[in-house]
Design a protein around this nucleic acid. Structure first.
Length: 257
DNA sequence: ATGTCCTCTCTTAGAGGA
């Protein structure tokens, strides 16, 4: 079973790229972030025609998350991260597909930092960590996939010294990620490629993709039930080079059945 | 500081976000 995560940066502006990627790689499950579309503007017909079922939580202009499944039922569990009824951003959706709990997340960017946006990021991170702990102690296989907006270590940025003040790499951010990982989760890409340079995002500026000046900020966290089933993991880097591409590339894992 | 690209609007230019 292949599960992918892809920050599409606008699902309607990106639809040809998304459909081509789905057709060429056919993931069984695809977690999407940054739909940048309200609920009613989700391109359901095109997704259905591509052979996918979908659940999504849209929002006008910003955020928005979706879970797609190829010829499989999607049982929605929740579409809001618990813990703050005032938080109206569409940044989390969770479902059960083929016996696996899939959490699809778009953690806040948090820039500029420090400031209210960074505070919101850290609050969201805290709530997510609490929810992850509850999922972790459950009996089911769990994967938490998405755009974490976290550069975990120096190995995950082309020039880490340029990012020390940035909300994606500040000590508080890395510390929060460490705390989450300390619950016992496996960073799937890092487990299989411990020393490799792996990027999932390349800025639109200054030909970052051409220079491979990237960041690894999209992650797959697995609980032990899924860790033992992990076979392969990678990034569809070539997709970032397509015309009208997102600034992220799709990331994927393969699990034994 | 800047670069680019998305979406939306007090809409064809500018703002906000990343």
């Amino acid at each position: 079973m292949k599960i992918a995560t892809y920050n599409v940066n606008g699902i309607n502006g990106r639809l040809p790229v998304l459909l081509r990627w789905l057709e060429e790689t056919t993931p069984d499950v695809a977690c999407l972030q940054e739909l940048k579309a309200p609920e009613e503007k989700f391109p359901l017909q095109a997704i259905t025609d591509a052979g996918y079922n979908a659940i999504w939580h849209g929002q006008k202009s910003w955020n928005g998350v979706a879970i797609l499944a190829h010829n499989m039922e999607i049982q929605e569990v929740r579409r809001v991260l618990p813990g703050d009824p005032e938080d109206l951003h569409s940044r989390y959706i969770e479902a059960i597909v083929n016996g696996i709990i899939i959490g699809c997340l778009y953690l806040p960017n948090g820039n500029p930092a420090p400031g209210p946006k960074f505070d919101y990021k850290m609050d969201w991170f805290k709530r997510f960590t609490k929810h992850a702990a509850e999922l972790y102690v459950g009996k089911m296989p769990v994967v938490l996939a998405g755009d974490y907006n976290v550069i975990p270590t120096e190995l995950d940025a082309y020039k880490p010294e340029r990012w020390t003040e940035d909300a994606l790499f500040r000590p508080e951010t890395r510390e929060a990620f460490k705390k989450l990982m300390a619950q016992g989760w496996t960073d799937a890409l890092r487990k299989l490629h411990p020393n490799e340079t792996i990027y999932t995002f390349w800025d639109y500026f200054r030909d970052a993709y051409g220079r491979n000046a990237g960041l690894r900020i999209d992650h797959f966290l697995l609980n032990p039930q899924l860790d033992k089933r992990l076979i392969n993991a990678g990034v569809d880097m070539n997709v970032r080079g397509w015309e009208k591409s997102s600034d992220h590339g799709p990331v994927w894992i393969e699990l034994a059945d």
